[in-house]
């Protein structure tokens, strides 16, 4: 469903050009769980942002469901983000002075979903992440792991087909990280395609497939991880 063809991304500032992504070729099929690994500054976040249409690219093409995102208008891209893609960030990015319910309803509002339906979906999503009883809480009243679960609820409330997670467990201790990981696996089993950036080799191994980026280029993760070969 995701196809990157010879995709390149250059950040230009007055002084320097950074080749954040170089000639990326990547195909991700419906229902896959892909772990993106690589050293810091290698372009993982940039790749995820390009996939999420938060960032434009300079060369190549990006096909989503067979359709190029090049030349789509801002409103078409927003609609695509809103309906097909869910984001999970390392820093949770919840709005502090909104209740959990309001945080989760936020993307649904921009889709113009009616209040009762929004409420139903938000409750369902909170149920799934095990926080149904706290929907009127504010994020600051929750632990980090709980906050990340709210962020996941927000990402899946819109029933996206792709979940993009940028180091979702980076700020969490190992117990909480495991809970989040289990949740993501569950969501993946329900049919959602997931691309996740991670530094944790254990987590990467639990994903169905590993992709490594070094210096903006994809390298075959299999070469570095014989276990993955066995599994595949």
């Amino acid at each position: 469903m995701i196809q990157l063809k010879n995709l390149s991304k250059i950040f230009r500032t007055e002084l320097i050009e950074t080749h954040a992504l170089r000639s990326i070729e990547l195909q991700v099929n419906e229902g896959e769980f892909v772990a993106l690994t690589g050293p810091s500054g290698s372009g993982k976040s940039t790749l995820l942002n390009v996939l999420g249409t938060l960032e434009h690219f300079d060369e190549g093409d990006y096909l989503l469901d067979g359709q190029s995102v090049k030349g789509l208008s801002d409103s078409a891209l927003s609609k695509l983000r809103n309906e097909k893609i869910g984001f999970i960030f390392q820093g949770f990015n919840l709005i502090k002075d909104y209740s959990l319910q309001d945080n989760i309803e936020l993307p649904l509002r921009y889709r113009g979903i009616a209040a009762s339906e929004r409420k139903r979906r938000a409750e369902q999503a909170l149920e799934l992440v095990g926080l149904a009883a706290r929907r009127d809480y504010h994020p600051s009243q929750l632990s980090g792991g709980q906050q990340q679960r709210v962020a996941i609820a927000r990402a899946i409330a819109g029933q996206p087909r792709i979940l993009l997670a940028d180091e979702p467990t980076g700020n969490l201790d190992s117990l909480m990280a495991r809970q989040v990981m289990e949740l993501l696996e569950k969501i993946n089993q329900d049919g959602c395609t997931i691309l996740m950036v991670t530094h944790d080799p254990d987590q990467a191994r639990r994903a169905g497939r590993q992709v490594q980026i070094v210096d903006g280029q994809l390298s075959d993760a299999a070469m570095y991880d014989p276990l993955a070969v066995k599994r595949a």
Binding site: G52, L54, S75, S78, K79, R81, N82, N93, L106, Y110
Partner: peptide, 16 residues
Amino acid sequence: QYEFSLRRALGASRGQ
């Protein structure tokens, strides 16, 4: 600005 960007990422268009 952070909140604006977040809303954009979650699917708000510039028009919205």
